[in-house]
Design a protein around this nucleic acid. Structure first.
Length: 507
RNA sequence: GCGCCCGUAGCUCAGUGGAAGAGCGGCGGCCUUCUAAGCCGUUGGUCGGAGGUUCGAAUCCUCCCGGGCGCACCA
C-alpha cells in the first residue's frame, strides 16, 4: 500500500497500457525525460518481443494521454516520458488541496503500534548515544502516525537490576565519603545527586524526561521493570522452561533464538531482565497493540531474535514484534576516540550537545544518517559544523517563502500555470510530487533518514527557482508561483516536522 | 572462532537490479530586485578486492581484505 498521487496516477496510465503495474523513476539526466520506466526491459522476455519494440508500442499509447507531452524509447528499451502542463496543474492542485496533510493517511489497514525507545537505565543523564535512539525512534513513530496508524511512544526503565544497585551504591558511597564500589558510577552528576539526600532515581527520571522533552521527544507512557516483574509468577507457567544448575531457563533456542536464556538466577531465584522482557512483551500485545517495535542500539543486536522467540513461546505471531537496530554513535575529541561510558563519567550528555548545536541541528544530524551507519561526532568540531549543517539550508528555504507570504498577504494562489512552465518551476513541482512516495518508503523501511535527504533536494530546487523567478508583482504568473511556494512551504514544514525539526518563518 | 553492521569524491554521507550523486572543503564569479544562511561555474570516484548470477550489478550470491559492535545467571 502506498499513497496515490500525481506520479502514481501517471504510472497507472502507463501500467494500463502495459497490462501490468509500472513504477516510474526520475532520471538524473534531464535528457531522459521527466519520468522513465524500465517496464519494457522487464516484460520483453515473457512477451517474446524486443524491449525497444515493446517500449515503442507503449510510447504510442501513452503519448495519447493529455498528461503526457511526449514519450520516447531510449537505450536498450527505456521508456522516457515528458509530462504536459496539465500534469503539473493536477500535481500542484493536489498539494494545495491537501496542505500540511499532503502525503498523510495512506496506511491501510490502520493499526496500533507501540514504539519503545530510549529506555536507558536512569543511572545518569541521557547521552548522545541514547539521543540517537530517541531521534530515530521518535521519527519512526511520527512517520507511522502520519501514515494514519495509532502510535504510542513508551519508555521502559529498569529500576531493579544490578546496574541500578551499583548506581545507588555509588551514590551512597559518595554520601558516606567512602570509596566507590568497583566499576562504580562517577562524574559530576553523581556528586550532585549525592548532595541532594533523596532517592536519586526519581530525580534522575525527571531530568531524563525534561531532556527528552527539550529534544522534542514526548513519551506517552513510562513502564517500570519492577512492576512488570511482579506479574512473573502468573506468566512463567505459560513458558517453555526447564531447570538446570539451579536456574530456570527459557527454551528459547527452540523458538528462533540463538541460545536458551536464564529467567531466574540460581542465586535466590532472582529474575533476570529477560524475565521482565517476557512479562513486558505479553503486556504490550495484550494491551491491544498490533505491533510492538523495539528500538535498540547495535550493542544489543544479540537480543534481536530473543523478542520474536518470546512471542512464539507465548503463542503470538512473531511478526507483530519488530526490532529496529541502529548503529552506535562514536565520539572523538580532536581526533582521539572517547568511549561512551556513563560509569566512568566519560561521556557527552544530550543536554551539553544541544547547548552546543541546538535542537534542530542535533536532531537533523542524528537522524540524517542511515540507521545502519555508525555516526562519528567530533565534539570539538560539533559547534563549528553545526553552522554549516544542511538543516539551515532547508530552514532558510522555508523562511524565504514565509517572507514572500508576509509581503503579499491575502493574494490567492492557484495551481493553474498561465503558460509554459520554466525549467525551475517544472523541477520544483516534480520534486514536491515525490513527497508521498518518499514518506511511504521511509515509513515502510523504518528509514527516516530519507526525509532530510529529500528535504535538501526540495530546498535545492526552491532556492534555484527563487533565484531565477520572482513571485510578487509578476502579473499573471503571480498566482501560480504563489501556489508553488505555498505548496513548497507545506512540504518542507511537514518533512522537517517528521524528524522533529522546526520550520522557522524568519531566520 | 561465530554472529550482525559498515567500506561510494580530500572529509561526512545518500543511492536495497536500470543511464554514478549531495553537502562540506578547494578554485573562480554574482547583492540598487520577495532574506547572499542564497545562486552560477569549476575541481574531484578502478563504488575495498576477486569471482559469480543477469540483457544490465554500487545494489543480489560466494570468497578475501579492512573497520565497528556483540557472543553473561549486566542491560
Amino acid at each position: 500500500m502506498s499513497p496515490t498521487n500525481a506520479v502514481t496516477r501517471l504510472a497507472a496510465e502507463v501500467g494500463e497500457a502495459a497490462g501490468t503495474p509500472v513504477e516510474l523513476e526520475r532520471p538524473s539526466d534531464a535528457a531522459h525525460g521527466d519520468y522513465a520506466t524500465n517496464i519494457a526491459l522487464r516484460l520483453a522476455p515473457q512477451r517474446r518481443q524486443s524491449p525497444r519494440d515493446l517500449a515503442q508500442e507503449l510510447a504510442d499509447v501513452v503519448s495519447q494521454s493529455p498528461r503526457v507531452e511526449r514519450a520516447e524509447v531510449a537505450g536498450p528499451g527505456f521508456l522516457n516520458l515528458w509530462v504536459a502542463r496539465e500534469w503539473y496543474r493536477d500535481a500542484l492542485a493536489e498539494i494545495l488541496a491537501a496542505g500540511s496533510d499532503y502525503g498523510a493517511g495512506w496506511a491501510a489497514p490502520r493499526e496500533r503500534f507501540q514504539v519503545e525507545a530510549v529506555s536507558a537505565n536512569p543511572t545518569g543523564p541521557i547521552t548522545v548515544a541514547s539521543a540517537r535512539n530517541g531521534a530515530y525512534g521518535d521519527s519512526v513513530a511520527r512517520l507511522l502516525s502520519f501514515a494514519g496508524h495509532h502510535v504510542e511512544l513508551e519508555y521502559y526503565y529498569n529500576d531493579s537490576g544490578a546496574q541500578m544497585e551499583l548506581f545507588r551504591e555509588s551514590i551512597e558511597a559518595v554520601r558516606r565519603g567512602e570509596e566507590l564500589p568497583e566499576d562504580g558510577y562517577q562524574g559530576d552528576y553523581v556528586r550532585e545527586l549525592a548532595a541532594l539526600d533523596k532517592d536519586p532515581v526519581p530525580r534522575m527520571l525527571e531530568q531524563i524526561e525534561a531532556s527528552l522533552e527539550r529534544f522534542r521527544i514526548h513519551f506517552d507512557s513510562w513502564a517500570l521493570q519492577s512492576e512488570l516483574q511482579r506479574r512473573l509468577p502468573e506468566i512463567l507457567p505459560k513458558l517453555d522452561t526447564y531447570e538446570q544448575d539451579g536456574a530456570v531457563w527459557a527454551r528459547s533456542s527452540d523458538y528462533g533464538d540463538e541460545d536458551d536464556r536464564v529467567l531466574l538466577r540460581s542465586e535466590g531465584g532472582r529474575p533476570t531482565y529477560r524475565a521482565a522482557d517476557v512479562v513486558y512483551l505479553r503486556d504490550k500485545l495484550e494491551r491491544g497493540f498490533d505491533h510492538a517495535l523495539y528500538v535498540l542500539g547495535a550493542d544489543h543486536h544479540g537480543t534481536r531474535n530473543w523478542y520474536a522467540a518470546v512471542a512464539r513461546m507465548l503463542g503470538y505471531d512473531p511478526d507483530r514484534v519488530e526490532v529496529l537496530l541502529y548503529q552506535l554513535v562514536h565520539l572523538t575529541r580532536g581526533g582521539e576516540q572517547t568511549k561512551m561510558s556513563k560509569r566512568r563519567g566519560d561521556v557527552v550528555f544530550l543536554d551539553e550537545f544541544v547547548d552546543e548545536v541546538g535542537v534542530d541541528a542535533a536532531r537533523w544530524y542524528l537522524v540524517s544518517r542511515g540507521h545502519d551507519q555508525t555516526i562519528e561526532i567530533d565534539v570539538d568540531l560539533a559547534r563549528e559544523k553545526s553552522e554549516k549543517n544542511p538543516v539551515y539550508y532547508v530552514q532558510y528555504a522555508h523562511a524565504r517563502i514565509a517572507g514572500i507570504l508576509r509581503n503579499i498577504e491575502g493574494a490567492e494562489p492557484t495551481a493553474d500555470p498561465p503558460g509554459e512552465l520554466a525549467r525551475e518551476e517544472r523541477d520544483l513541482v516534480k520534486r514536491l510530487a515525490e513527497f508521498p512516495g518518499v514518506v511511504a518508503e521511509a515509513t515502510e523501511r523504518r528509514a527516516p533518514h530519507a526525509l532530510p535527504n529529500y528535504a535538501i533536494r526540495v530546498a535545492d530546487d526552491f532556492h534555484r527557482f527563487y533565484h531565477h523567478h520572482r513571485v510578487i508583482d509578476e502579473g499573471e504568473a503571480q498566482p501560480f508561483r504563489l501556489g508553488l511556494v505555498v505548496a513548497t512551504k507545506a512540504v518542507i514544514a511537514r518533512g522537517l516536522d517528521l524528524i522533529g525539526v522546526e520550520a522557522p518563518d524568519r531566520m
